[in-house]
Amino acid sequence: MATQQSTVDYIMRQLASVSGISANKMFGEFGIRCDGKIVALICDDQLFVKPTAPGRELAADAADLPPYPGAKPSLLIVPDRWEDAGWLSALIRATADALPAHIPQAPTSHKKIISFQALGGWASPTFQSFSWEIPADRGTLNRAMVMVTRYRRTYNRLAAAWKPCIVVS
């Protein structure tokens, strides 16, 4: 069962006093961010706050339950506690302050640079050195070699003059 937009709107109205707060749709449910950090999840119309020491002090009666199967346990905040906007805002702010700063990860690329460099002097200046950005698996290397051989008369001449080397960057 997905979270209703009215539940998210109500919680966000209660958290309006917290600066830097936003809700993002994530996999059919919602994540609540404070200062760029995910501090809570709204899953199946229930509010789950990340467990931190200050958060546990404020929400001593909250149960530790996973928001979805396979997730780490979080503090389940019952809907009766949502009505106290001051308490809920203090809980979210304390949790955000206790969490480490968000460090954006560099985008991972499955692509590698494959460079073919000429070892002999017979190749034309156009083919002395060139590179493609393609996935570096065995099949792609074979296809790249086939492409290179199409520009030369024989494979033997090509194999003697060119040496493929993979440069990972």
Rank of each mutant, 00 (worst) to 15 (best):
A40W: 03
Q4H: 09
W87L: 07
F130K: 01
G139I: 03
C165S: 07
A96R: 06
H110I: 02
A63G: 06
S74Y: 14
P66K: 03
T3G: 04
L76K: 10
K50P: 00
R56S: 10
L65Y: 00
A2H: 08
Q128H: 10
D97G: 00
L65I: 04
W132Q: 09
V167I: 13
S74V: 02
T154R: 15
K72Y: 14
G139Y: 09
S19C: 01
N24Y: 06
Q128F: 09
F27L: 03
M26A: 00
Q14A: 06
E133W: 10
K50F: 09
A161T: 13
C165Q: 07
G20M: 06
W87R: 14
S74W: 12
P104C: 06
A106E: 14
S17M: 03
V8T: 04
I77T: 11
L58N: 02
L119T: 05
M147N: 11
I113D: 00
W87A: 03
A136G: 07
K111M: 08
D9S: 10
R56P: 00
W162T: 05
S131T: 11
M26L: 03
A118M: 03
F30V: 01
C165M: 10
I38K: 12
D84G: 01
I21A: 00
G139M: 06
D84L: 04
E133C: 05
Q46T: 03
G86E: 05
D35S: 13
A106P: 01
A90E: 11
P164D: 00
I21H: 01
A118W: 09
T108M: 04
S124R: 04
T7H: 05
V168Y: 15
A161W: 11
S19W: 10
F130A: 02
I103Q: 12
A2K: 11
L15D: 03
L99E: 05
V18D: 00
A159D: 12
S124V: 14
P54A: 07
C43S: 14
M26E: 08
Q14K: 12
V39T: 09
Q105G: 01
I21M: 14
G31D: 05
P73N: 09
S169K: 15
P135W: 12
G36H: 07
R143T: 13
G139A: 13
A144M: 15
G86I: 06
T3P: 01
I103N: 10
E83Y: 09
S169M: 15
T149A: 07
I11H: 02
Q117L: 07
G20K: 00
K50T: 15
A98V: 06
R56E: 14
I134W: 05
K72L: 15
